[in-house]
Design a protein around this nucleic acid. Structure first.
Lengths: 138, 138
DNA sequence: TATTGTTATACTCTATAACTATA
DNA sequence: TATAGTTATAGAGTATAACAATA
């Protein structure tokens, strides 16, 4: 592997490090852990079942149960039996949850600030590169 | 904020999401948590004090104490009183720790695989963009 | 008196295994 | 019998406050 690739990999590590740290701070700033903020984001566009959330968040269903329980206790989400399959549960965001989700997104200024440093052309170039970089494995 | 910026921000979120997941899997694959892998990496280039590690890892010193205690119990790092200031402790990586650190880096193929998709020219372009994106705030 | 690190404690995240309810 | 979710439990990460040792 060439030196060049290594150098870019190192730059990328540093950038992701800062990105993650900024997200963590944004979540904290509005009183959420990163796991809670991610779950809220996962149900922001509409109700999801526990299983769908577990898949989205790449974690175990029992984990989702616990995080949802805490968010529910704070009135940020609700948990209702599914209509079709009554074994499942639909997790829906509440008005308060949606408000907090918006606050968290606003507090996470990092991506907009960093991307905003680039010219329109450079943003387009980055977007094109990311299309290649982000494409799934196989 | 223009649509374009939003779109790039969304692509970036997805990429960082996959990056973090891949790092977590690589660490697990060699029997480490991400926190442990990061600490090992932090002392891979030479001994560091608890305080230095806490600063590097953006966490509390009491946290470092606990992670180091676990790594020390597994023989991956040692903890010695500092020579100059005897209040401080020098955390040094052991041969076994260095070996595991190397394994973890190797298992983390994600960045090399993704960057390797780009031509040499595109890698250079990405590197230049990252220079701007990664520069500190002020 | 100030600083470095540890201890005690508490909360959250996370997974595994056993369980309940429904299909 | 299989699946969706929960409960019980346990280990790890994380921070705050009180503390010990050293400066």
């Amino acid at each position: 592997m060439p030196d060049r690739t290594d150098r870019v990999a190192q730059q990328l590590w540093g950038f992701v490090y800062d990105y993650d740290a900024a997200y963590e701070r944004a979540a904290r700033a509005v009183g959420l852990s990163t796991a809670q903020a991610c779950l809220l984001k996962a149900v922001a566009d509409g109700p999801r079942t526990m299983g769908e959330i577990a898949t989205e968040l790449l974690c175990d269903a029992s984990n989702v149960t616990q995080v949802v329980t805490r968010l529910e206790a704070r009135g940020l989400v609700t948990r209702q039996p599914g209509r079709a399959d009554r074994r499942s549960r639909e997790v829906a965001i509440t008005a308060a949850g949606a408000e907090l989700d918006r606050s968290a997104r606003q507090a996470f200024r990092f991506p907009r600030e960093r991307i905003g440093r680039l010219s329109a052309d450079d943003q387009q170039t980055l977007s094109t590169l990311l299309e290649t970089l982000a494409a799934p494995d196989s």
